[in-house]
Amino acid sequence: MPITNYSVLAGKPTAGKVVTGASTHYQITMQAPGGPFTVAVNIQSVDGSEVLYDIVEDFTPPDLAELTALPMGMTALKSEPGGSALDFVRSTVNGQPMITKEQMILLPQATTKSRGNAEEQMVQRARAKALENAVVTLLNMTVADKDGVIYAFGSSFSDSGKVDGIHDIHMNQGNPVGGKGGGFSKDNGVWQDGALFINLPSKGTWTGVFIAFQTESWSTDSSGNPV
C-alpha cells in the first residue's frame, strides 16, 4: 500500500532543529497558509540501514511551471506522471534522470561492532553530521532570502490539532519484503517519492535535496516493489 496523503508543502522556513529518538531527523518550521507546518527530514534511518543522499545545485525541477504555479501551503498530489509528483526511478529533467543512485553519497550507520570503539563512533557521527550541516546551510540561506521558498514533497499529516506537517521526505519505493527494511514494504509505490526543492529568487537558483536508503532497490515494478 502506498504512503498516505502524498503532497507537497510550499512555504517560508523560519527555524530548524535536530530531533532525536527512534528516527533522528531535522525538523524545519515553515510558515504558509493553514500553518505553521513541521517538515521532518530524515538524517538517519529507523532500521539502521545506510542513508544515501545528494544535494543538487543549479537544479531544475521536472515541471518548473506547474510547481511555481502551486499555491503556498499544502497541496495534495496525484501519484501519476505528467504532474508535480516525483519518482526517483522515473522522473526526468530535460530528458535525463532527475536523480540516480550512482550520484548519491553514502552515509554508513554505526555497526554493532563499531559502537564500542570511540574512534569509530566519532567517524560515524561526523558522517551523519554532513547531511545535517548541508540542510542547515540551505535552511539559513532560504530564511535570509526574503522570497525564499522550500517545496517539501512527502506524506502530509495532522498532529491532533497541534502543528500539522509533512514527512517521508525520501525515496518511497523499492523496499524489500521481509528481512532488513522489509517493514517498510507497505509504503512502496510509484510517483510518490519525497524530496526538498529550495528556490532562492535573490540568487536565481534552485537546489534539490534527495534522500534514500541502501535497502531500497532502484529497479521497481509498476507497484513500486523491487524486481
Rank of each mutant, 00 (worst) to 15 (best):
Thr4Arg: 11
Asn5Glu: 04
Tyr6Phe: 14
Val8Gln: 01
Leu9His: 10
Ala15Asn: 06
Gly16Arg: 02
Thr20Glu: 12
Ala22Glu: 08
Ser23Glu: 15
Thr24Arg: 15
Tyr26Ala: 10
Gln27Ile: 09
Ala32Glu: 08
Pro36Met: 03
Phe37Asp: 02
Val39Pro: 03
Val41Ala: 05
Asp47Gly: 07
Glu50Ile: 09
Tyr53Glu: 07
Tyr53Lys: 05
Asp54Thr: 13
Ile55Arg: 06
Val56Tyr: 03
Glu57Cys: 06
Pro61Asn: 13
Ala65Arg: 12
Thr68Arg: 01
Leu70Asp: 07
Pro71Cys: 06
Met72Trp: 04
Met74Phe: 05
Met74Trp: 03
Met74Pro: 02
Thr75Phe: 07
Gly82Tyr: 02
Ser84Lys: 00
Ser84Val: 15
Ala85Tyr: 00
Leu86Met: 15
Ser91His: 04
Thr92Cys: 10
Glu102Arg: 07
Glu102Gly: 10
Gln103Val: 11
Leu106Phe: 11
Leu107Tyr: 06
Leu107Val: 09
Pro108Ala: 14
Ser114Arg: 15
Ala118Asp: 06
Glu119Pro: 05
Val123Leu: 11
Ala126Ile: 09
Arg127Val: 15
Leu131His: 01
Asn133Arg: 09
Asn133Thr: 10
Ala134Gly: 13
Val136Pro: 11
Asn140Tyr: 10
Met141Ala: 11
Met141Asn: 09
Lys146Thr: 13
Asp147Thr: 09
Gly148Asn: 03
Val149Pro: 02
Ile150His: 01
Ala152Pro: 03
Ser155Gln: 05
Gly161Met: 13
Gly165Pro: 02
Gly165Trp: 01
His167Met: 04
His167Leu: 10
His167Gln: 07
Asn172Ile: 05
Asn175Lys: 02
Pro176Lys: 12
Val177Cys: 05
Lys180Trp: 14
Gly181Asn: 07
Gly181Ala: 14
Gly183Glu: 01
Phe184Gln: 11
Ser185Phe: 00
Lys186Thr: 06
Asn188Ala: 08
Val190Cys: 04
Asp193Pro: 02
Asp193Tyr: 01
Gly194Asp: 00
Gly194Met: 01
Ala195Asp: 01
Leu200Cys: 09
Thr205His: 01
Thr207Glu: 11
Gln214Arg: 11
Gln214Thr: 14
Trp218Met: 15
Ser219Tyr: 09
Ser222Gln: 13
Ser223Phe: 14
Gly224Thr: 09
Pro226Ser: 05
